[in-house]
Design a protein around this nucleic acid. Structure first.
Lengths: 137, 137
DNA sequence: AGATTATATCTATATATACGATACATATTA
DNA sequence: TAATATGTATCGTATATATAGATATAATCT
């Protein structure tokens, strides 16, 4: 018997202690948009609207503001020039990283405490779960 | 040799696919406040201000709005009645949960794919890392 | 009593989010 | 080719949020 609540507790503890410092003011919507674009190719305004469950004009305006901040870039789809294709700028990747990832310096420090066997187990656990997630979802 | 970037990649993949649906409009500041209060006891306005690096009045107003939404509760510290002690309401716990944890239904589904040996390895990996983090940070 | 501390409130400003209505350019179809 | 559909952009408007400075209040300490 395994306990998913327990895993969730570990999950939040790890993030609480290892997240990066939050520099920029940013909302969840913006992070969701950045992450959705980063994790999928060829995302346009329409897909953003559907994903966030907001109207097209809201998505368009939200994306415009994110472009103004320099986090996103626009291209036109060559096969259908009505469509926009969005991708992250380097700044956008950096912002997304700082708001969703673990601080690698802290993580290194923590991992250094462990035996190499334990480290391997941790890494293997994450890898296995991540790969299982992609197969299943 | 272990690779922290790889762990980070797994980390974001897992969260992207397993996070709960985002119902409420919420900012990062609010989640940071809720999480900081949940992970520590006896937090007041002053500590919130220090933690977020904002002025005391900003922290006070922010907390006031969060209380209005029903996510936080106030008590006075019995030993020093100037001080406020903040704690999460049930709604607040629920909101924090939905914005920082993994969807337990999805997680169960993913874990069910694995052998019990793999499941144990994953759980053990999280536990070990979580405990290591608390020792180290 | 006076100073310090912790919090609260008032005012003002900037920004984010959202939607409806409308416009426009590019496909697609009859 | 004319009519329609599709994808996006913009305008006007409304609301919520975040922030700070100035000031106030209440409890505590010296």
């Amino acid at each position: 018997m395994y306990n998913v609540s327990e895993i969730n507790y570990y999950w939040t503890e790890i993030y609480y202690h290892l997240h990066l410092p939050h520099k920029e003011k940013i909302t969840h919507q913006v992070i969701r948009i950045l992450q959705h674009i980063e994790k999928n190719n060829g995302i346009g305004i329409g897909e953003v609207a559907t994903y966030l469950n907001v109207s097209h004009n809201t998505a368009s305006e939200n994306v415009k503001r994110i472009i103004q901040k320099g986090y996103l870039q626009k291209q036109r789809d060559l096969s259908d020039e009505r469509k926009v294709i969005l991708c992250l700028t380097d700044t956008g990747k950096d912002v997304l990283y700082r708001n969703t990832s673990l601080d690698e310096e802290k993580l290194k420090k923590v991992l250094n405490q462990f035996s190499s066997k334990d480290r391997q187990m941790i890494e293997q656990g994450f890898r296995t779960l991540s790969e299982g997630v992609k197969k299943c979802m």
